[in-house]
Design a binder for these strands. Structure first.
Lengths: 108, 108
DNA sequence: GTGTTATATGATAATATTATCATATATTTG
DNA sequence: CAAATATATGATAATATTATCATATAACAC
């Protein structure tokens, strides 16, 4: 009972799911602090939470929430070393978004 | 009184502004219906509101809100012809986001 | 004009995201 | 063990986004 070609409805569902996944990823990163974190990690490779806080001039707790959420959603990964937790990009593709958006010329 | 090199603080501000702009654009499109609209328009070029509603199986009013918002934020443009309003991508770069995200392999 | 269709608008409700704060946990140092 | 440091957690408040509904507007057909 193999289906070789999808019906319009099936195709629609596939596309719908694809859009939901894409939106999910985009929502995860669509925040200035999160983008700054991504940008930072793409340059530095790995950073401890406190260093990120200092560079971004942003509260520890808030940064931690952002980091954990992005990790949960598969954008970051982390590694513990003593007192410190080092975060880095898990999904390196994501930095292309930033490059991609630089070329956009929307109203703000 | 020209400043040839920016101070760290200035650079920080510049990057902050850049991240805010990028987040603004990403937020504008980070929604399954909006992505579907963008995807559709990238294929069809131009479409009337009702046709978009039908294809996406989505309420007229909701679609209209999304379209107007995306237009306001510089992603779409529109053109009126009689009763119909045809929308199309203003910012074609934006479709690269979708391609970019297809390669990401995050948890969902 | 009346009726019909396409789109927009605006209020409100429902929901999700983000920030803040106080505190918990875990690790290291002495 | 007590103190200090780094990070996480969880509750809550503040804010933003999204959906829904009822209705307005505008253009066309008759």
């Amino acid at each position: 009972m193999e289906v070789l070609e999808n019906s319009p409805k099936e195709r629609f569902q596939v596309s719908k799911q694809k859009m939901e996944k894409a939106a999910y990823i985009l929502k995860t990163v669509a925040h200035p602090v999160r983008l700054a974190i991504i940008d930072l990690l793409s340059q530095e490779g790995q950073m401890g939470v406190n260093d990120i806080c200092k560079v971004l001039d942003c509260e520890q707790s808030l940064v931690s929430h952002h980091l954990i959420n992005m990790k949960l959603r598969g954008i970051l990964k982390s590694q513990k070393d003593g007192l410190n937790v080092y975060y880095e990009l898990k999904e390196k593709e994501i930095i292309k978004l930033l490059a991609c958006i630089e070329n956009c010329d929307c109203n703000m």
